[in-house]
Design a protein around this nucleic acid. Structure first.
Lengths: 159, 159
DNA sequence: TATATAGCCGAGCATTCTGGTCGGGTATTG
DNA sequence: CAATACCCGACCAGAATGCTCGGCTATATA
């Protein structure tokens, strides 16, 4: 199983999208500034996210990315799957050929753990995260720091 | 958070130790053969395990490694911690400086996940694994394949 | 129609980790 | 003294991570 900054970045960026959904398409440049993630790296991640139908893109000026579905219908596990291609804790991927054709001693332990992690991350949607007070707190600070976009004067609902 | 073959190997090797505890010290060469793990790599892993006081060593012929405590007192999380040095899902390690000095949006999500995984792996001891039918099944096959060590004629308890 | 925006895309690259080899120690048993 | 088996450090190929850079295409606006 792999769980690194890659997946973290992807979830963070998707959450940024969910938080600013009312502003219309969000450019990667905005996300890059707000979340302090390299623009080119974001492009790579969003290429995968688009292929997995988690976001849709709008090209040209004023364009950017939108969530393909509502935040309530996108769970964290999907996002990590999209960029990481494997959320499995076993090495054999369930093939039970871990230890020289045989099943390794701890095979069942890792399948259990995988199930555990997966069900945890499956139970959390972007909408859940948006609701959380700490997330809103951080998001508000980021908007202020980033010079509170002029496109939309006041974003309702947060304050 | 890191969860790779390294941790898997360590847990597998420790479980092998727990399974053959009655035979006295177990050599890494034996584990290497049974579990199909490179001997030199095992040496590196056991160096860490020894530093973390999870195993004790006996040098010289007939020597090997023993669990430092009973299997019921060693949980899987400890083993992974010992070789992996980090079972943390956050990038900042709880310092909240993930995103340019600030806390990243998803900080709490990763701390929650870390807690989840840790408590799961903390709840499983080597003794628990030894008890499991699938583990005993695999272990028996390995012993037969490996030519059922002559040192101890019949290992009580398994059959 | 020109220009700026912003999504796309591929090559390349430094750094780190993994999983491993090799060679040489040292303690202990017989 | 020789064999066993722990100990330890150096080194290495391959893969992944997190980037950069350069160039392309679609679209909105002046």
């Amino acid at each position: 199983m792999r769980l690194t900054t890659k997946g973290r970045y992807a979830v963070t960026a998707m959450l940024d999208l969910a938080l600013h959904a009312e502003r219309g398409p969000i450019s990667l440049a905005d996300i890059s500034k707000r979340q302090d993630i390299s623009l080119s790296y974001l492009e790579q991640l969003f290429s995968r996210l688009r292929q997995s139908s988690l976001v849709s893109s709008v090209r040209g000026p004023g364009g950017g990315y939108r969530l393909a579905r509502s935040g309530a219908e996108i769970c964290v596990a999907e996002i990590i799957d999209a960029v990481n291609e494997s959320v499995d804790a076993t090495s054999c991927g369930g093939n039970s050929d871990c230890s020289g054709g045989e099943q390794c001693l701890t095979h069942y332990l890792w399948t259990d753990l995988s199930r555990q992690i997966h069900s945890f991350l499956n139970g959390i949607t972007l909408a859940d995260l948006v609701q959380r007070a700490e997330v809103q707190e951080v998001a508000r600070r980021q908007d202020i720091r980033g010079g509170a976009e002029e496109k939309v004067a006041i974003i309702g609902g947060l304050q």
